[in-house]
Design a protein around this nucleic acid. Sequence first.
DNA 1: TTCGTGATAGAG
DNA 2: TCTATCACGAAG
Length: 188
Amino acid sequence: MVGRRFFQRDPITCARELIGSELIWNWCGGLVVETEAYLAENDEACHTFSRPSARSFVARNKPGAAYVYFSYGAHWMFNVLVKGQADGFVLIRALEPTRGLTLMRKRRGVDDERRLCSGPGKLTQAFDITNRDHELDLCSDPQHCFMPRSNNDVDVVADERIGISRSAHHPWRFTLRGSKFVSRAVKL
DNA sequence: TTCGTGATAGAG
DNA sequence: TCTATCACGAAG
């Protein structure tokens, strides 16, 4: 399992290196194919910029803690806390399902494999991640963790974050090159 | 392209 | 109390 030290660096490095790891969540699993980094300092898109509750979350929790919040009245967003050389979050944006597809199809109400986890709101629905999991330690429970890449030959693409209005120009979205399971195609 | 949905935070 | 905003997704 990916250990705490992994999350004791900076959010951009962690977001890049999580691509190709596998998220294990009870009976479900998926390869991480899309992430975004958010920095606690100098990043207007990060919750710490406008939310006191996010700042206290960072202060209170250890690196590797789950930061889960509700968005647009409908969707849960799943992030991992990074605290080290720089503080911030990694948003998990898309997965390639590996285990528990039957359960995911039932929860999502769709059949197409590509549509199960191809977006931050979709994957939390498929994996049943909710505010129950807020502040969960992702570095101690084998049923709620990331398994490291099996090899380091992972081709990662960096481009602009999507779905935000502020500080949108930073190339802090990371995807697995050529993956059919990303939320939106990479801009050319 | 549009629209529903509800938590959060800041202003009045 | 009120308003703005939102790291989205599904339908059209």
